[in-house]
Design a binder for these strands. Structure first.
Length: 427
RNA sequence: GCCGAGGUAGCAAAGUCUGGCCUAACGCGCCGGCCUUGAGAGCCGGUUCCCCUUUCGGGGAGCGAGAGUUCAAAUCUCUCCCUCGGCGCCA
């Protein structure tokens, strides 16, 4: 959510930033918002004046009552009786305006950092770094789907029978590989100063709104029927929501959390895309990084989170590239976003493994996560950041492809050997 | 799920029965100022949010959330949420 005060003071600054997203509807929303806010303030003043008068009369009534001046008392009470209805009427009206204003604010995206490349769609994203050498195969590399099916590591057919498309059974060595990856991920994050946290997978609506998942991405999340609960698509939701309505201390910054949870996504907008295997599914386990900090440190922290992801993927020796996501592809919450894309030999291309976002104060303002330098000093809005470390199922697809052998067996990355009693997966 | 006790500002804590100088006391912590060579003590002001005002300042809201009664609600009524204790059930 944008700062309404900044919108009042520097509407042109906001307008220019929103324009970079190449969506004219945002500019229309901004104009509407400014108009509504003006109305709101005028009405607020009117209501406050009425309340002031009511409070003054209430004071007089108290005095007159103590003095026992019945005549005057009756007159003033009669006068006072008229005010509540007027207030009520105006309150009903201002509430509508307020809701509309809030709705516009909830839909307007975050301000973009100046270093975000101007562009549209994936084509506009900017590769800023490439790491590792893509392996040269002297045979035709198989896809992760083929590899896993042949090795009896997944069963998507029967999963479809019980749950539908985009569900899966994970089997045998793959199960152990998952736990090895989780352990490895957690160990790295612990060493990098993160508190380890397993989160509730269900969260309330206001937390989903606060995180920016609602209302804009409503179709991407599962809702529990008859309950005020949604299945979180990422532990970012509960972890950022954890400090909602709190006032933190600057001395504690940065707060760093390593979240582990199952993530649930409808994948509503992805019909026909990546339908096979466990690359894109309705549920997956994810180890996530979250930071809460102040505006002075959040850009350094953004690099720190990405660096942490790099350390992890380098330890697995997966070739990847770092991509700066462009203005047209970044989504409403992040002010800047890097993706880490891993190499898929069967597709001869890089695919997203990690997304690292600085959400600046966008989520924190919605969730009222504030901080002080010290007790007694004024409160400020925090900055929140998030980054994947590894989404297990997606990550496994990349590992499997890069570590395949000609006979269809799979080597286990060296760094995981200490967690497993096998070094390869064979038929 | 049942019974009981609670939820008041950064922390702590009174007020609730009996509605009205509650402008939410007293305290701790912290910030600013005065004083001091410096620190401490002491004194003064401040320490949630919103609106008006260039400034000075003025006003409004807020006592877990929401609704209601009333000229007036932290205080009375209703619904809901959460915490703690006891009982029950349970992986």
């Amino acid at each position: 959510m944008l700062d309404i005060k900044l919108i009042r003071e520097k509407p042109d600054f906001i307008r220019e930033n929103l324009a970079r997203r190449r969506k004219p509807e945002y500019l229309e929303m901004l104009d509407e918002l400014i108009e509504e806010d003006k109305k709101w303030r005028e009405m607020k003043l009117e209501i406050d004046k009425l309340r002031q008068k009511r409070n003054q009369l209430t004071g007089k009534i108290r005095e007159l009552k103590q003095q026992g001046r019945e005549e005057e008392l009756k007159k003033i009470i009669a006068e006072a009786k008229e005010i509540p209805d007027k207030i009520k009427e105006l309150e009903d009206e201002i509430q509508k305006i307020e809701e509309h204003r809030r709705d516009l604010l909830l839909h307007l995206p975050n301000l973009l950092h100046e270093s975000v490349p101007y562009g549209e769609g994936e084509e506009g994203n900017l590769v800023v770094k490439t790491w590792g050498e893509t392996r040269k195969f002297d045979f035709q590399p198989k896809s992760h789907v083929d590899l896993m099916e042949k090795l009896n590591l997944i069963d998507t057919q029967r999963a479809a029978k019980i749950s539908g498309a985009r569900f899966y059974f994970m089997k045998n060595e793959l199960v152990e590989l998952e736990y090895a990856l989780i352990q490895h991920a957690i160990r790295i994050l612990k060493d990098r100063g993160f508190d380890l946290i397993v989160t509730p997978p269900l969260v309330k609506e206001y937390i989903m709104i606060g995180g920016g998942f609602l209302p804009t991405y409503r179709e991407d999340v599962y809702k529990i029927e008859d309950e005020d609960l949604f299945l979180a698509g990422t532990s970012e939701a509960p972890l950022v929501g954890m400090h909602a309505d709190e006032i933190l201390y600057q001395d504690d910054f940065p707060l760093r959390y390593a979240g582990f949870s199952t993530c649930y996504r409808t994948e509503a907008g992805a019909h026909g895309k990546d339908t096979k295997g466990i690359f894109r599914t309705h549920h997956f386990e994810k180890v996530e990084q979250i930071s809460i900090t102040g505006p002075e440190q959040s850009w350094d922290e953004h690099e720190y989170l990405f660096e942490t992801a790099e350390i992890f993927w380098q330890s697995l020796e997966i070739p990847y590239r770092k991509v700066n996501i462009c203005t047209g592809d970044i989504g409403i919450v992040a002010a800047k976003k890097y993706d880490l894309e891993g190499w898929y030999p069967s597709q001869q291309t890089y695919r997203e493994l990690v997304s690292t976002s600085n959400c600046t104060d966008y989520q924190a303002r919605r969730l009222k996560i504030r901080y002080r330098e010290k007790d007694g000093m004024p409160t400020k809005i925090c900055h929140t950041l998030n980054s994947t470390l590894i989404a297990i199922q997606r990550g496994i697809t990349c590992i499997v492809e890069n570590y395949q052998r000609e006979d269809g067996s799979i080597e286990i990355p060296k760094v995981l050997h200490k967690y497993l009693d096998f070094k390869e997966i064979t038929p």
